[in-house]
Amino acid sequence: MDKQLEDLDENRKQFEQWALDAGLELNRNVYGYAYYSTNTAWRAWVASREVIIVDLPDEMTWREASEKGLQSAYTAGFTDAVLESRVAITSIGLTIGEKSDG
């Protein structure tokens, strides 16, 4: 499955759980959700997620870790955490901030 579709699926699952809890109908048609209120809520949900930008640190190189007196295992763990955070954040429809050059 395409990564964007997987992300949308996770985002939609979260929306639909919220919508059910809020008492909205989840019937769908070719245009989206059959009920105007649910379709509007979905569009607002997606739009609200698009404006949230999460800044994450860069992955750490072995050289950076060494300069800070850290072991290579720390570097690997730190980098894995950053990469897994990216996956988790984008899977719920949020955006990762762009890197800036200082």
Rank of each mutant, 00 (worst) to 15 (best):
I53N: 12
D101C: 12
Y33N: 03
Y33K: 01
G93Q: 04
Y33W: 10
S48C: 12
V87Q: 12
T90P: 02
I89F: 02
G102W: 14
Q17S: 04
V51D: 13
A22L: 04
W62S: 14
E84P: 02
G102M: 15
W18C: 11
L8H: 03
G23T: 02
L26N: 01
A44K: 15
K68W: 03
Q4M: 01
A81G: 11
K13N: 07
R28V: 10
L70E: 08
G93T: 04
G77Q: 11
V51L: 14
A47E: 15
K68E: 07
K3G: 01
I92G: 03
T95P: 10
K68V: 00
V82K: 02
L24V: 07
T61D: 02
I96M: 09
I96E: 05
D55W: 10
V51E: 15
D101M: 13
F78I: 01
A81I: 05
S100R: 14
A47G: 12
I92Q: 06
V54F: 05
F15H: 00
I96G: 05
V46A: 09
T75F: 02
K99G: 11
K99H: 13
A47M: 13
I92S: 04
I52Y: 11
L20H: 02
K99T: 14
N27M: 14
D7M: 06
I92L: 10
A22N: 12
G77A: 09
L70N: 02
A19C: 06
R49I: 05
K68S: 04
W45H: 10
D2Y: 01
D21A: 09
L26C: 06
D58R: 11
N39Y: 05
Y35N: 13
A88V: 09
I92K: 06
D55L: 10
W62I: 13
D80T: 12
Y35R: 15
V87N: 08
Q71W: 09
S85L: 06
L70W: 08
I52F: 11
E10T: 08
R86D: 04
